[in-house]
Design a protein around this nucleic acid. Structure first.
Lengths: 241, 241
DNA sequence: GTCTATACCCTGATAGAC
DNA sequence: GTCTATCAGGGTATAGAC
């Protein structure tokens, strides 16, 4: 403890500084767009220091990601645990599950202010990164959480085929990634130069949630019919037995 | 005409060869992952030929994209025109509009076999590319189509605020991009090593369509209340005045 | 006009001195 | 642990061959 020399302090600071700078630059430029020289320059450390502490650009990105994703997913598990405990064995409602998964994400981002927004956009961006190794990282980090949430959804919607639920989970992830990847993408659809992006972040949650719920609980597609004209237009609802 | 010298023929072939090779490599490696040397090498042309014909890697990518996107969006406009003509002034049904937009995409892909699948994955991948210039390209290419389809949706859902429709359009684009970006992403959610991906492509359309329709027509979120617990769980429907 | 050869500066990565 | 030097590979630009 008294052995906490200046060198050791510097070391810890170097690592943290690199992580912080990397998060900002990755966020601003994407994985490929960011350069190690830019990151280490902003962190005011030597170029090789990045390689010394993390080994490679990929590993650095992975470290940046995990630092945030881990606490998010732990929180997601905690919330789900709490809900299931409170339900005492009864299946949860779909709206509860979606809120625990997607709501936790957005609420954590809102709670952390600007930093949270950066983190949110980074995640959104990352979920849409095509690089192979990134999806490997993600699938590992998300494996537990997704398994738990899928199970919860299976129980919540026993009349919906599991295959269908998995697909719809996938659709929901896509919609959410797009929504949080930043307003850049939104400009594809709209022309508003909404300066009020911060406002919109708070409104995003209810908006997104009703969309996701509507999609998750939509009438099932006609079984195995490859009919190109879906007929599920009306308000037909699946009847309970 | 008689002046169609060998040089001119070679010229056309060079451009086409570069485009074809670029499409394949971009598709396989993503934008950043692909290198001009790899592309020109596979096309068996000189490295600088790419730069001569297209000016830059970005411009080449843009050319690759537009070649496919243009015909897709033209078809989308044609289908919408046809529907609206047939409706004779009456608003279209949301299901028709979504089918014209998303169904046209998937049906064109299915109709073109393997080539179509490549094209589909390329588009899905592109829609999730974070690079700035790519979204610039996309927003130009999609401007007309999105404007037309937004207008159609506004007319189809007069009781839903336009702002909400735009958001939901955005969500739908995200869900679809994810769905078609390839099964790689799907492995995040599922463990099935489904070899039958081709089968699934045909089933994707009805699946996706019911999800999107459900989301588009979902009950509206509680107006301006930043309540984190969305209550739109039941089938409450917005009343007409 | 088309295409080639070549050079320039950037990137990520590594080895070895301190 | 930290830094310097150096490497192969990337996109880009240009001068010159046909």
């Amino acid at each position: 403890m008294g052995a906490m020399t200046e060198a050791a302090i510097d070391n810890r600071d170097t690592r943290e500084r690199i992580l912080d700078a990397a998060e900002a630059v990755f966020m601003a430029c994407g994985y490929d767009g960011a350069s190690l020289r830019q990151i280490t320059g902003e962190a005011e450390v030597n170029l090789a220091a990045g390689h010394y502490h993390f080994g490679s650009k990929e590993a650095l990105f992975q470290a940046v990601l995990n630092r945030r994703l881990h606490v998010l997913n732990q929180e997601r598990l905690r919330v789900l645990d709490e809900m299931e405990a409170k339900a005492g064995g009864a299946p949860l409602k779909p709206s509860q599950i979606l809120d625990a998964f997607f709501g936790t994400l957005l609420r954590m981002a809102i709670a952390h202010g600007d930093r949270g927004q950066t983190f949110l956009r980074l995640i959104g961006r990352t979920l849409t990164e095509p690089a192979e190794f990134i999806r490997t990282v993600l699938s590992k980090e998300f494996a537990d959480v997704l398994e738990r949430y899928k199970a919860a959804l299976f129980r919540a919607l026993p009349e919906v085929p599991k295959e269908e639920i998995v697909w719809r989970f996938h659709f929901m992830l896509g919609a959410t990634s797009y929504a949080i990847a930043g307003t850049d993408t939104l400009r594809l659809v709209t022309d508003w130069q909404t300066g009020a992006i911060d406002d919109d972040l708070e409104r995003l949650l209810p908006r997104l949630m009703s969309f996701l719920l509507g999609g998750l609980r939509a009438p099932l597609p006609a079984a195995a019919s490859p009919n190109p004209q879906p007929r599920g237009n009306g308000r037909t609802r699946r009847k309970k037995p």
